[in-house]
Write a protein that binds this DNA or RNA. Structure first.
Lengths: 144, 144
DNA sequence: GTGATTGCAAATCTTTTGCACTAAA
DNA sequence: TTTAGTGCAAAAGATTTGCAATCAC
């Protein structure tokens, strides 16, 4: 691994607190990824996009570690996975209750706040089963 | 390809009509797959499951052809793709408006008729976009 | 015949893993 | 120290593709 001077202060402090809050050891790589992921704007990212972002920042994080870290963050509840088209896994930095627009042409995901969709009726959950989550994806396309 | 006696009559007749109806050339392999897929019961299948079903029937359909055929059927509107967990693509033989239960533990998909979910409110579609489809997945788990 | 389809194997793409090395506690 | 985390390269899965042989029309 490339030696990298240790950053102190600024965004890294809050990232460190975030990770320690969920018992994830705050390594340099995880802090770099967390600082980018949790910068305040909600993101929908793939492993490859995360890797590109780290490369841009010359953060020195290998692709294997990107995957390990995204999975570790997901297990800790910091991220949520979204499967849209089977091509690749998206990770959502917004773990609150909400839904998504998906543009079929651009492959772009956008949040829909939970308050924007209300159900008048939901089906009975089969016996012996419990409802975990309701996923809603509104597939859209550029209007012609 | 293994020589196989050509079947006539029964399920194959309706499959042939089905394929010809959407301008898909009814080859032996496509007929075998269609006869299984469209036997009347709604199915959610993966490529691997389809391959296993063809093997069971000694239908002699290679995995490459399974993929080609499932994709061809999807393009013709005979099947619909569903992405649930990023692991693999599911193909749904029910192309009508409907939704799904997904059991996180078993990986099993079940249909929810369109009439069982009603929306009291949907978000405004962004300018310049048109709504193509609303996907709803109710994620469930064995209740403890 | 002629162009579409098939099968095989190789290629591609995303994601995971084994293992020696390094860093956090 | 001791254990968890990292990087690399190899492995694993799912899916696609190039191409010669074969089939549908």
């Amino acid at each position: 691994m490339k030696p990298e001077r240790k950053k102190r202060g600024g965004k890294y402090d809050s990232s460190a607190a975030l990770l320690q809050g969920v018992c994830v050891r705050p390594t340099r790589q995880r802090l770099a990824l967390a600082a980018w992921l949790f910068d305040g704007s909600d993101k929908h990212v793939t492993a490859e996009e995360s890797s590109a972002a780290m490369r841009r920042r010359r953060a020195g994080v290998s692709l294997a570690t990107i995957y390990n870290t995204l999975n570790a963050f997901t297990e800790s509840g910091l991220l949520r996975q979204i499967a849209i088209d089977g091509a690749q896994i998206y990770f959502d930095t917004n773990t609150n209750d909400h839904y998504h627009f998906f543009d079929e042409k651009t492959g772009h995901l956008t949040d829909i706040p939970a308050s924007s969709i209300r159900f008048a009726q939901l089906p009975k959950i089969p016996d012996g089963k419990a409802l975990l989550r309701v996923d809603v994806v509104l597939r859209v396309q550029r209007a012609r």
